[in-house]
Amino acid sequence: MKLITAIIQPDKLDEVREALHAAEITRVTVSRCTGRGHQAGEELYRGQSVVPTLIPKVRIDIACNEEYVDAAINAILKSARHGDGKIGDGKIFVTALERCIRIRTGESGGVAI
């Protein structure tokens, strides 16, 4: 089992969800977050361009079994890029997932995902 955490641009959320859905990955957790990577974001404020220190992003967490990992990564790569790829498009982190327990039934492991 792996935990895939993707940090993407907020305007790409719908496209990423659509791509994940097409790859039959429907169980996701989405949250708003702010952060700072390589990108120097630029926003309009009263007609001035300003560079905020932290930039709003969307975080997607997907817990999945091994056979879905590549499909999920490819779906995100394909859908989260702006054009041919721009600085700020985000990152994907893959971490090993030790356990997964379904609260309703108490089952654990791959079947619970």
């Binding site: 907020p10 305007d11 708003r32 709003p56």
Partner: peptide, 21 residues
């Protein structure tokens, strides 16, 4: 439409301040 009109038409976010910045 998918990105949202706040971003594409106005270059802003309605609830930007909910996030720390």
């Amino acid at each position: 439409e998918m990105a949202g009109l706040d971003e594409t038409m106005h270059g802003e976010q309605g609830y930007g301040l909910i996030n720390l910045n």
